[in-house]
Nucleic acid binder design. Structure first.
Length: 674
DNA sequence: TCACCCAAGA
């Protein structure tokens, strides 16, 4: 008897219990399969345990059920106690090892055992496709190619399963040419899974248009997977609107939507930072009952976090219940973005297990709010608590903190850690190291590392040009820029900030003007705040206040405090108090609650000996009740960091520090007199 | 009874 549906099965099961007639092994096997398929694993297990006789099919069915449920401990127990194992038993076990993270080595061992143990189990097409999956997951093309050769030799390369698995494997190993070739060879009749794998491969390669063309080949074939692949392909390449448009079209065409669809659509909403669309999708998810899928619930939380709606995000997370690390990570990032690091830290501490992504999230949060000490402390905590090799993105955060703090020694330690552990030096990491060395005052090291990189990208050039600028090496900055153009690396707005800042350091007004002009005319870039502020500063330092005034009048964007601050400084250098007053009005209008601005203004008047004006500004500041954080210096010693503010006597050894300082000052005075 | 293609947080 054939039991087709769960209803059939239940009916049959009840009948057999009532009648007391033991079902045949064949029927019981079918029942186990039906129960497991419909999520009733407990019932499947119970039936399996109660069976007086079992055959190899019985064992294979229950093993497969637990493989699908990712219960590997149970799978291994069953596999080892199974009295007779055939190729199917081995293939199921192999599939368990391949599809559950952390058992990849077991899969390789089992694969070898299947071929060489006595008696030989052998391998078949199922084994090969499962192994191709493993190759794709681990990205080890050499093994993939061996499997491919074996398939060619054994003549099993023509089935849809084989081709789609091969396409997927080559694509995930980064061999796009081979992927295209395989797809092209099988063009006589289009196999849906192979076509879907090809669409995915194109999107993975960033060839979205090509992917779309494949998607529209014989569109009547397309199933939910095809649509999902294309929707996610758009999303992952940043074409969020196209992703959502295709989703709408999918709904109109009445193609069945599943949990994968919603997951990608939610990512697109996050990418667009559209809370409106996010809410719409959220409503649809609730309506269609997908609100227990962890991919989807974390996706919803993420949309609200990315859009800055932290209250909604918290609420959604609470409603969805059951701890979801992805949701919590999104929340940590959301709070980091809004500068609420206390809340971010609280959430971080609430996680029982912390993976490298969540550590990275906290690191980047502290970096974003420039809490460098917290970055260093977190690093200490991480090294104590976790044993794994530090993630490149974490190191980038720490290097950033070193750069801000001008802490060369910790920076060097990180650099040697990278060399020691053999972490792959990608361009981002390389740029961070170069930036760290240059900001910590060691331009020679920065340059040496830069010159070792053959394939230099935009960020790498920008960092190096900024480094040269920072150290007053105008010619080197311009040479690097010319080399960049010669290598067809397109400059961006940051390149010109670096170049103009090089001009600022050496006072080359003409060159600065040339760059400002050239970025618009030759490179189709729009000057932003930093460019104008840089130019105003350049004019100021070159005693060309009239040009600064002219530029201020013609800046096409609303000048922000950075530009006004630069202009104020220009007024100070050129001793023009009338214009300084104008800058003051504008500055305090925008930044009336920033203590540092009042002090800057007071200093402008003080430099001119205009004590009345200075007093007026200080009184204004007092009335507004704003404070300025004291500027400080710091020194790294073996015992940690010591911070000093002006007139500070809080340090335990402050007496000896001050007497050393007095000696040094006397010596400097002597040198100056000589 | 086992195998292919689509989903999340830096």
């Amino acid at each position: 008897m054939q039991l087709k549906s769960l209803k059939d099965g239940l009916f049959f099961h009840v009948k057999s219990i009532k009648s007391g007639i033991q079902p045949t092994i064949f029927s019981s096997n079918q029942l186990i399969h039906l129960y497991a398929k419909n999520g009733f694993l407990h019932e499947a297990d119970k039936l399996f345990d109660e069976m007086p006789y079992r055959n190899v099919f019985t064992w294979n069915t229950i093993i497969a059920a637990h493989v699908k449920n990712h219960n590997l401990t149970r799978v291994e127990v069953l596999f080892n106690s199974s009295p007779r194992k055939d190729l199917v038993t081995y293939n199921s076990m192999l599939s368990g090892y391949v599809n559950i993270d952390g058992y990849e080595v077991n899969a390789l061992r089992l694969f070898v055992e299947m071929q060489y143990s006595r008696p030989v189990i052998g391998i078949d097409e199922f084994t090969i496709t499962t192994m191709l999956n493993l190759v794709a997951k681990l990205a080890v093309p050499s093994l993939g190619m061996q499997l491919h050769s074996y398939m060619v030799k054994s003549g099993s390369v023509s089935s849809g399963f084989s081709v789609s698995s091969l396409i997927d494997m080559y694509s995930k190993c980064g061999f796009f040419q081979e992927t295209c070739q395989l797809f092209g060879e099988g063009h006589g009749e289009l196999d849906l899974a192979s076509k879907n794998a090809m669409v995915a491969a194109c999107c993975r390669e960033g060839e979205v248009e090509l992917g779309l063309n494949v998607f529209w080949l014989e569109p009547e074939l397309n199933d939910t997977v095809s649509w999902n692949t294309m929707i996610s392909g758009f999303e992952r390449n940043g074409f969020f609107k196209d992703s959502l448009k295709l989703f709408v079209y999918m709904v109109e065409k009445r193609v069945r939507i599943n949990e994968h669809t919603f997951s990608s659509v939610l990512s697109a909403c996050s990418g667009m930072r559209s809370v409106k669309l996010g809410k719409e999708v959220h409503a649809r998810v609730l309506k269609e009952g997908f609100n227990t899928n962890p991919y989807i619930t974390s996706g919803i939380v993420d949309v609200y976090c990315k859009c800055g709606y932290m209250e909604y995000a918290e609420l959604a997370n609470a409603v969805f219940g059951s701890e979801n690390t992805f949701s919590v990570t999104s929340l940590i990032l959301g709070y980091s973005y809004t500068g609420n690091m206390a809340k971010a830290r609280w959430l971080f501490d609430s996680l029982a297990e912390k993976n490298s992504v969540v550590w990275t999230a906290l690191f980047s949060g502290y970096m974003k709010s420039r809490q460098c000490e917290e970055v260093f402390m977190l690093l200490k905590e991480l090294v104590v608590k976790e044993t794994y090799v530090l993630d490149a993105l974490i190191l980038i955060s720490v290097l950033g903190a070193c750069a801000i703090r001008s802490s060369l020694d910790p920076g060097k330690e990180i650099h040697s850690y990278i060399l020691r552990t053999g972490i792959e030096m990608d361009k981002k990491l390389m740029s961070s190291i170069i930036d760290m060395y240059s900001k910590c005052g060691n331009i020679t090291y920065a340059e040496r590392i830069f010159k070792e990189v053959m394939k230099r990208d935009k960020v790498l050039y920008n960092v190096m040009i900024a480094g040269y600028a920072h150290h007053g090496h105008e010619d080197e900055a311009i040479n690097a820029f010319n080399e960049m153009l010669g290598r067809d690396v397109r400059p961006d707005a940051a390149t010109f900030v670096a170049l103009m800042s090089a001009c600022r350091h050496v006072g080359s007004v003409e060159l600065g003007e040339k760059f400002l002009h050239s970025m618009t005319i030759d490179h189709d870039l729009t000057p932003e705040t930093d460019h104008y502020a840089c130019m105003v500063d350049l004019y100021g330092r070159a005693n060309q206040l009239e040009k600064a005034v002219l530029l201020m009048r013609n800046i096409p964007i609303e000048p922000d405090p950075v530009i006004w601050g630069a202009f104020l400084n220009a007024c100070k250098i050129n001793g023009n108090m009338g214009l300084a007053r104008e800058a003051e009005d504008n500055l305090l209008r925008i930044e009336g609650d920033t203590g540092a601005r009042y002090i800057q203004l007071a200093n402008v008047y003080a430099a001119e000996g205009n004590w009345n004006e200075m007093r007026r500004v200080m009184e204004k500041m007092k009335r507004k009740n704003v404070k300025k954080l004291a500027g400080c210096s710091w020194v790294y010693t073996e015992n940690g960091v010591s911070v000093f503010t002006s007139g500070d006597t809080s340090h335990a050894r402050s007496e000896s520090i001050y007497s050393t300082l007095a000696c040094l000052t006397t010596e400097i005075d002597h040198i100056a007199l000589e």
